[in-house]
Design a protein around this nucleic acid. Sequence first.
DNA 1: GAGTGGTCTAGACCACGGC
DNA 2: CCGTGGTCTAGACCACTCG
Lengths: 272, 272
Amino acid sequence: MSSVLPTSGPAASPAVSGTPVASPVASGLGTPAFSPLYQQIKALLLQSLQAGEWLPGQAIPSEVELAARFRVSQGTVRKAIDEMATDNVLVRRQGKGTFVATHAERATQFRFLRLLPDDGTAPQLQRRLLECRRMRAPAEVARLLALSSGEAAVQVRRLLLAPEGSELRPVVLDDIWLPGTLFKGLTAERLQAWRGPMYRLFEAEFNVHMIRAEEKLRAVGASATEAALLAVREGEPLLSVERLAYTYGDRPVELRRGLYHTAGHHYRNELS
Amino acid sequence: MSSVLPTSGPAASPAVSGTPVASPVASGLGTPAFSPLYQQIKALLLQSLQAGEWLPGQAIPSEVELAARFRVSQGTVRKAIDEMATDNVLVRRQGKGTFVATHAERATQFRFLRLLPDDGTAPQLQRRLLECRRMRAPAEVARLLALSSGEAAVQVRRLLLAPEGSELRPVVLDDIWLPGTLFKGLTAERLQAWRGPMYRLFEAEFNVHMIRAEEKLRAVGASATEAALLAVREGEPLLSVERLAYTYGDRPVELRRGLYHTAGHHYRNELS
DNA sequence: GAGTGGTCTAGACCACGGC
DNA sequence: CCGTGGTCTAGACCACTCG
């Protein structure tokens, strides 16, 4: 099928609202780089999301409306949206519409928190902020976040604690680095005041929406300072979780190193 | 839409090859339990797979053929197959056909092996079989594998070793339990002789195909015997990975406890 | 060229949610 | 009641594979 190109004439061939589309380009030797219409629609929708045209939690236009806008059949729009729904970027709700995914919902809230209590109950973790400061990104952090060397970064250090009887027991020690330019107004006060998932704060206040992440897990022994913070003895085996989280367009926007004390909790994973 | 029911009359309403379908049944109070046609087709295809009608690596009938068999449009069959393809149960190959997924392919081979060398190279693990014996399933194993108490089980214990310079370094200690009735001819000799992924052996010799698994990860300290086998000192932090693997119909068929030495390797995970 | 899956269309009807 | 997404159909054409 022909690519989606802006057309000045009335409805004849498929066209887009006026925004030109990156038309299929031969990449290298004789590769036609054929791109289906619905993939182009998907790219356009992602652009709109990235530009903030529709905010997390809001409804996007209906399928018929989008089909009209792009001069395409409803089925084609549907296929584009289908893929974005399985990517957890959009959420379909029959009878209501299609919505931009948000970390406010309880369902998506636990997509990125894989640590569960062994007894099968729902996790109820309290936060305790240890630190929040702006600094120049260390070389390794800058590299992973694709920052220029010496660029500003925000470092957040916090504990997550689980109720145990009437006490609170530290379970997670998180070290988080964020690009300073994206998180301009992020302060300890702002973090302290926030009730709800941290990724929801990022969405609401900084327009940064995490959609996927890569994690590297290891078993390590607790250092002296880590042991003190987690209330375990030095050398205690801990689960080290290094996470790189991405927003729209595969842009890395968070580096996180978590240390999990896995007595009483475990990291759950599904292989398929 | 009406449910798929066997029809003796000629092509009029949708019908199936002759096998009756579990028609939508009210479950509990007034729940209509509406099931779309393509879901019913999917269930039928899964039944055929479970029955061994098409073996791993083989092609299933073409979409048009299945559409004719089920008296349904090609689009409906397509939607059923689409879901099974995203579930990694079937594999589509344009121009060739649709095939039953197999653990023989290199792509799917690493779906269940998440341990990667830190240097980014491809994993090259050697196996060393330590034990393979039949026994009565311990209570905990029986429970997780849904076996009757005292039923037969096969226990396999093995090491995975990674090349390090000119030496081999133990990296993984696996303890595996399998239902004895499903794995009748499984012996140490058979395991020793096999070249290729273990799950491929299970497929080829015992007609057991793993499609998904749940894992629980923890950091633990090496016991004396574990330390000896993995050539680490006692108490060394190790990544404990407890896996329950399922075949068609969500039937648990493997329990595995792996201990990973994560110096030089890490467990990779994708969150989305 | 024949057969496979992949895309796209147009239209009908159904299930759900809210006015 | 209407508008939303969800299902199903029938048919056209395209891209890929193989003989």
